[in-house]
Design a protein around this nucleic acid. Structure first.
Length: 679
DNA sequence: GAGCACTGC
């Protein structure tokens, strides 16, 4: 395999790409000073400080200011402080800044608190799920996840506590960001004094500007451009496309490593399997290392790793070593590693897509967008000028979409629509979306909500619908929490609700140790299926003191179990508020499983002789996920309900429990006799 | 007999 790169700026045609890298900002000319400085003068030395007056003027004059600046230019930490100093937090007002991720909200709040010279949770605070480090009276700058602020609109529809709301990282277009922007536009009509700051990457700024600009006025919104604190990154493309970008990535990393220049390497691939293969390719090359050259240390980085394993990418390497980090999209925005000088980009990413017609979610490997390619390249220029090798030709870049489709266009809308209904937004077709969800997705969600009794036939919220809209769980799970009153099993349903909300409860290692893990898991296995197995695991975790070492020796994830404990106690508060009794079924598995059916009533399936299932709705072929305790077992009754289905190579169902078929009849199903279609 | 991009309430 031979790989030939070329750089559009230096040879051949293609000067279009220059713009791409030049626009990202220029080298900062002023060298960092090491003289002791006060916090205030340090802040004044940030490049963004030059724009302070312009930012404040635009926010004062325009209802919406769209702030464009690269990651790291200081907008997230500085703008709320400028607003604070300019008096926007007077008279009990709060300046909010939303983040799409929990870690960002907490870490930024911590940094700003120290810059302001206050204790975190006093003048500067943060609010994320399970953690409210803010003071009702004293907090003036509040960092929070966008999901939390969206939720707050259910309690205070005009968000009257806030004078300015800054929506950070809006270009990522997460579902809560989009929903929030739609609501904020509505709120501003009723409360014109509210100021909005939308922070976005360059490529998406005009779409936000159009969204917030009405046809009648030019003074609704303005774009404020900030100088980025980013170094230039040279971009190189492959002359010819490659059939195997994993191998190409390993080879490019290796040739880069053999160059004398220092600096770490970051490779973007799509998933764990590719990362493992790339590690293998590299381990074959490493022994060919010439004497006296530095050592190469490959490090995988993906969400499936434990936090200890993830932290290894931050360890500083010795002087004669070089790190090569082989990562998924986690390194594009969620995890930032300094010292990267070379980025190698496969040009692909895995995204979750939802098909509203079949109600199936699947993971698809697709080309990245230009925005995402730019973001990946920018990871090489955080601390010094860098190089990005794109493992595809320039023509492939040119055929990429500008940005990744917003999450709202490719996700199940059931819960968001219930929440919008609870906010009094009745005509969803008229709602002013930043990007509209597919109409099929809206219709399907409405149909599901009517069938579940959350909306009446007239499309209006029912009494139970209003309560369920407040619960931070999926529709089916909320429904079984409410039904647990009839089956007297609230205690167990709470646990099951929490355990099905967390991922990767059991940690089954690869190879020989995996067999031992399987044996550990078998200790929790319940005859009836996965839900009761999860219940057993939770109860054992609590019984043995919620200990991390106990988890380790029983193939359980301590992180997942601890999260389940938090979720359970949060859900318990909701049940108490809604006067739902929290009774135990005292080991009566039948009652408990009947209650499960009340939530999963649309997820019934019938076993057929080849070991697969057929869905009750649609008679679709379903395969049991290999992590299920029902993977090898035929249910005695021949029937199950399942938590979710997902399309991979096949359609798979996860977390299943055996039921009696007549329990489904009570929910209006007509069952086909097994002899007529079974093999 | 076999598999998991990443968030969030």
């Amino acid at each position: 395999m031979s790989l030939q790169f070329w750089k559009p700026g230096t040879s051949g045609p293609g000067s279009t790409l220059d713009r791409d890298t030049q626009a990202e900002g220029s080298l900062i000319s002023s060298a960092p000073s090491y003289a002791p400085l006060s916090v205030q003068s340090q802040r004044e030395r940030l490049p963004i400080y030059k724009h302070r007056d312009k930012i404040l003027y635009c926010i004062e004059k325009y209802p919406v200011a769209i702030v464009v600046g690269q990651t790291g230019c200081g907008k997230t930490t500085q703008i709320p402080q400028y607003l604070y100093e300019a008096g926007w937090a007077a008279e009990g007002n709060i300046i909010a800044c939303t983040q799409p991720r929990r870690v960002a909200a907490t870490s930024v709040a911590g940094r700003v608190a120290s810059e302001v010279g206050s204790i975190l949770g006093d003048e500067v605070g943060y609010t994320i799920r399970f953690e409210d480090v803010s003071d009702k009276e004293r907090t003036r700058i509040l960092y929070m996840t966008d999901g939390m602020l969206f939720r707050e609109t259910l309690v205070d529809p005009l968000l009257s506590r806030y004078s300015v709301i800054m929506v950070d990282e809006a270009h990522e277009r997460g579902i809560y960001t989009d929903l929030l922007l739609g609501l904020l536009k509505k709120i501003q009509k009723k409360r014109p004094s509210l100021r909005l700051v939308i922070s976005s990457a360059t490529l998406d700024a005009t779409s936000f500007l159009n969204y917030f600009t009405s046809s009648s006025s030019k003074d609704d919104a303005i774009i404020v451009s900030l100088e980025g604190r980013v170094f230039p990154v040279e971009v190189a493309y492959l002359r010819e496309p490659t059939a195997d970008y994993v191998k190409a990535a390993a080879m490019t990393a290796w040739t880069t490593h053999l160059q004398p220049h220092p600096g770490d390497i970051l490779i973007f691939l799509t998933g764990r399997e590719e990362i493992d293969r790339c590690l293998e390719e590299l381990s074959e090359l490493i022994p060919t290392r010439p004497k006296n050259s530095r050592r190469l240390i490959p490090l995988p980085l993906h969400a499936g790793l434990t936090s200890d394993e993830q932290l290894r990418v931050f360890e500083t390497a010795d002087r004669d070593t070089r790190k090569v980090i082989i990562a998924t999209n986690i390194a594009e925005a969620s995890v930032t590693i300094d010292g990267i000088k070379y980025v190698i980009d496969s040009g692909f990413v895995k995204i979750r897509v939802y098909n509203p017609r079949t109600a199936l979610a699947s993971l698809a490997t697709v080309p990245t967008s230009r925005a995402s390619a730019t973001q990946r390249a920018g990871r090489a220029g955080r601390t010094a000028p860098g190089v990005c090798y794109r493992l595809y030709p320039l023509s492939a870049y040119e055929s990429m979409a500008d940005s990744t489709p917003a999450e709202i266009t490719r996700t199940d809308m059931t819960t968001p629509i219930l929440q919008l209904k609870a906010l009094g937004i009745d005509d969803l077709m008229k709602f002013d979306w930043v990007s509209s969800p597919p109409s099929e997705s809206v219709l399907r969600a409405l149909e599901g909500l009517v069938a579940a009794g959350m909306l009446g036939e007239d499309g209006r919220l029912t009494a139970i619908g209003a309560q369920v809209a407040e619960c931070p769980v999926e529709l089916g799970i909320a429904r079984m929490m409410f039904k647990s009153k009839d089956f007297q099993c609230g205690e167990e349903i709470l646990t099951i609700a929490a355990m099905t909300s967390v991922q990767d409860v059991f940690i089954i290692r690869d190879g020989a140790p995996g067999a031992l893990d399987e044996l550990e898991r078998r200790k929790f296995t319940a005859e009836e299926g996965d839900h009761l197995t999860l219940l057993n695991a939770y109860n054992a975790f609590v019984r043995y003191g919620k200990s991390s070492s106990w988890c380790k020796s029983h193939a359980l994830s301590f992180r997942a179990m601890s999260r389940a404990v938090s979720i359970r106690s949060q859900l318990k508060k909701y049940m108490q508020r809604f006067n739902l009794p929290i009774q135990s079924c005292e080991g009566d598995g039948k009652r408990l499983r009947q209650c499960l059916v009340s939530g999963y009533w649309r997820n019934g399936a019938r076993w057929v002789a080849d070991g697969t299932y057929r869905s009750v709705r649609g008679n679709q072929v379903l395969h049991v996920h290999p992590t299920s305790v029902m993977f090898t077992r035929k249910p005695r009754s021949g029937w199950v309900v399942f938590h979710e289905m997902e399309e991979t190579k096949k359609t798979q169902i996860r977390i299943l429990t055996e039921i009696e078929p007549d329990w489904l009849l009570e929910h209006g199903h007509v069952l086909v006799d097994k002899r007529s279609t079974g093999k």
